[in-house]
């Protein structure tokens, strides 16, 4: 299991678009679980509706936890997406 904490830089937080982009990318890794720990909750990083409904605002810190096949690569990919603001 590997983990890293990142900050949300998207001005509107993790609204539908970034949530969808993240979930879509994470869903490709069937053998690796992705969890997001934020605001004291643990949510499934592959579930777009959970990510959206968590209401993650700009400036929130999110701990990404990956567990499973190629977990480091999956974590790196997720971290890069947060850091690039999901291309926004």
């Amino acid at each position: 299991m590997v983990a890293k904490t990142v900050e949300v830089i998207n001005a509107q937080g993790l609204h539908m678009r970034p949530a969808g982009v993240l979930a879509q990318a994470m869903n490709k890794h069937k053998e690796c679980d992705v969890k997001l720990n934020v605001n004291g909750k643990s949510i499934n990083g592959k579930a777009v509706m959970q990510i959206m409904s968590a209401g993650i605002k700009c400036g929130s810190t999110v701990e990404i936890v990956c567990d499973g096949a190629e977990e480091q690569a999956v974590l790196d990919e997720a971290v890069a997406m947060f850091e690039s603001g999901f291309g926004e």
Binding site: M16, G20, A23, Q24, A47
Partner: peptide
């Protein structure tokens, strides 16, 4: 992009 995101919604595990 909305239509790409809608595809992601359909794949939502919950």
């Amino acid at each position: 992009q909305i239509f790409a995101i809608h595809q992601a919604l359909m794949d939502d595990p919950d």
